[in-house]
């Protein structure tokens, strides 16, 4: 763990990976007075810290072994008919049907959100199944598109440009600011994909 000051009111804490970031972000909430706690791939940003906050002392109680607080389970039904399904199958050296089998076999965890409100970076794919981003991003990816990039899986909450490889689509509403929990896949949420019948 490495703490770096970010201007007068924030600090960036570097950790080993997304799992540690999620653990630390969960641990920090309620223990450190910060307006924003933003986990990412290898960091947690603590923004809006009070003056004189001794972060090093406060974070001394956390260790990477602290498990992330268990998040809720969400099952995501997917129609696997995405435009990049065959390309992903080629990367994985299997059939399109096997992509579905593998994608539904893993348990994913929402590591962090970014890119757009409610867009969760879902970890869980082994690194050997990492796929590249599209060489040229699409100008429009429909809401509900289930897509892969590197070893991440993501679901587009709203239609937007995007460079991830789309393998399918879901009808679930990923983002609704009028809901008590506006993001369906807030950090920590555990996700299982199933093939929609």
């Amino acid at each position: 763990m490495h703490i770096t000051q970010v201007g007068p009111r924030a600090a960036l804490v570097e950790v080993a990976d997304a799992a540690e970031a999620l653990s630390l972000a969960g641990w920090v909430r309620g223990r450190v007075a910060a307006e924003e706690v933003v986990p990412a791939a290898r960091t947690v940003l603590l923004d809006g810290l009070g003056p004189g906050t001794d972060l090093a002392a406060l974070l001394a109680g956390w260790s990477p072994e602290v498990p992330a607080p268990p998040g809720p389970w969400v099952t995501v039904p997917v129609v696997y008919d995405g435009p990049d399904l065959e390309a992903v199958a080629a990367h994985w050296g299997c059939s399109a049907g096997d992509v579905v089998v593998r994608h539904t076999a893993h348990v994913f965890v929402s590591a962090f959100c970014g890119f757009s409100p409610g867009f969760a970076y879902l970890s869980g794919l082994p690194t050997e199944l990492a796929v590249p981003r599209l060489a040229s991003p699409r100008t429009r990816v429909e809401a509900g598109s289930v897509a892969l990039a590197d070893a991440w899986c993501g679901i587009y909450p709203t239609a937007s440009p995007g460079g991830w490889q789309v393998i399918g689509r879901t009808d679930l509403t990923l983002w609704d600011p009028t809901r008590e929990q506006p993001a369906l896949l807030a950090p920590g949420t555990r996700v299982r994909f199933v093939e929609a019948s």
Binding site: A25, E35, E36, P39, F115, P117, F119, A186
Partner: peptide
């Protein structure tokens, strides 16, 4: 709005 950055807002 404060407190929603972790959801990408």
């Amino acid at each position: 709005r404060r407190g929603w950055a972790h959801l990408g807002v």
